[in-house]
Amino acid sequence: MVTKVKINRVRAKIFNMVSTGVIDEPMNKFYDFLSIVALVLNLFAAFAITFDYMEEHYKGLLLAIEAVTTFFFAVDYILRLISSAELYPKLSGAKAAIRYISSLAGIIDLLSFLPYYLPVFFPAGGTVFRLFRVARILRLFRINSYYDQLNVITEIIVSKSQQLLASVFIILILMMASSLCMYSVEHEAQPDVFQNAFSGIWWSASTLLTVGYGDIYPVTIMGKILGIIISFLGVGMVAIPTGIISAGFVEQYQRLKTVGEFAEEENIHFIRVRLSENDKWSDKKIMEIGIPKDAMIVAIQRGNETLIPRGSTVLKTGDIIVMCAEKSKDIQPIELKEITINEGHSWNGMAIRDIDMSRQSYIFMIRRRGKAIIPKGSLVIRAGDIVLLYEKHATNKNV
């Protein structure tokens, strides 16, 4: 049992180390820095070696950089594979590993180093394998975890996905319709160019998307008039997705600004919690979960909907709950805190009832591997837990 606990602790440390953005310990911060440096150097070597001067004078150095950084990617993949059970805590070790291997991130990590070594075993496929090295560029998206502003782009695309798909669908319909119309008026004048209704797809795509290569173009008067009309429609159609994304940026930043100003003005602290399947809050009404009276649920994100909570609102698995606690304007201000428990923390391995805390401090939730746990006196705090507590600061009435 002791050995299993040690293995789990080592695996948790490895997971924290390879997880991008977890910089609570110097080793984790150094590993993130090393990952970024390795990726930048690898991409630099891949691009630099395509220049004749660089290849002639620095080929050995560039190949050495590629070899070392690619080996680092291989080690990183192995570490992520070992710690995959921490990434998917509900799955067993083997199933978690398979889940990681088959995930998009796992495939990108695998393609980051495997094509480099495959020519050793299959020399004939060296050129094809080299094409797969482009997957290393996709590792740049890991840097996205450092910057919340970059995450806004993903959130906007997801939230506006239906509108974007609708606009793309309209563009496809216009492409087919314009191709058929152009075939009808240009087939007799250019039978070799517009052979059938689908021959104009390339022309309609380049026209509607405002590229205009000029390799295929109408020669009849009716075809030119039709081409002008379709060009005008193309400008409007391309502007639709751009407008949707632009509007999404405006809405998102306005929302962030409003929440930030409101929190600053009212001195309110916000915490977001995602409910998992085994959460005790799942399938319960808000009035039944017993949150502290000084804290409140201000919003519930369910899919693409934002719900205004009421006492009778039933919480469901997958909901993102936005909680807040405000500093009272009269007697006792309240402050929410998040404490990440690491291996060396004094609370690690202790039951809540045995923790020596101020009477003004209260633990109201523990997040463990993405799951929210309602604290009880017998609950033992573990390494990796995020303890959410609020503190009441007594004011001095004599001042």
Rank of each mutant, 00 (worst) to 15 (best):
M176E: 05
N278F: 07
F47M: 15
E86M: 06
G377I: 04
I291G: 00
A105P: 05
R274P: 07
I36W: 04
T395D: 00
A295P: 05
E277V: 12
M222E: 11
S358P: 04
G125D: 11
Q301I: 12
N196I: 06
K392H: 08
T207P: 02
F113Y: 05
A351T: 10
F72P: 05
S204G: 08
T258H: 06
T154C: 02
I143A: 10
Q190T: 14
G248D: 07
G223S: 09
H269A: 14
D294C: 12
P218F: 02
T306F: 07
F249N: 01
I82E: 01
V298S: 04
D354Y: 03
V235Y: 08
D215S: 14
K376P: 00
S145H: 11
V120Q: 08
T210Q: 14
E25I: 11
V40M: 11
Y217F: 12
G21E: 07
P115D: 05
E186N: 09
L114H: 04
S145W: 05
Y53L: 11
N28A: 10
R99E: 06
V2W: 02
Y213H: 07
I366N: 10
T127M: 09
E56R: 15
N28H: 12
L233Q: 04
I98H: 00
G236T: 03
T69H: 01
I297M: 14
S103R: 12
R9W: 08
V193Q: 02
D356Y: 01
S112Q: 09
K376H: 11
N16R: 14
M175H: 00
E335D: 10
S328M: 08
T50P: 04
V298L: 13
A177D: 04
V399N: 06
L34C: 08
G227K: 03
S328V: 08
S199P: 09
V322K: 05
G377W: 02
L114A: 15
K29F: 10
F72H: 12
N342V: 13
Q360E: 15
L164K: 02
L110R: 04
A383Y: 00
A177I: 15
K376W: 00
R302T: 09
A247T: 07
N398W: 04
V322M: 13
Y31S: 07
V22G: 00
E251H: 09
I352D: 02
G377H: 06
G106V: 06
N196A: 14
E188W: 00
P292M: 02
F47Y: 12
S361W: 00
Q190P: 11
F44R: 03
I157P: 08
F232A: 10
F73C: 09
R359G: 15
A12E: 08
I268T: 13
E264Q: 08
T69P: 02
P123D: 06
L62D: 01
V2Y: 03
T258P: 00
F262G: 15
L233M: 14
R99K: 11
A94S: 13
A12Y: 04
T313S: 14
Y53W: 09
Y53T: 12
G370W: 04
V250D: 02
K327C: 10
L91C: 03
S84N: 07
S102R: 11
A96Y: 03
T313M: 07
K316C: 08
L307E: 02
K160A: 14
A394T: 12
D330Y: 03
R139P: 05
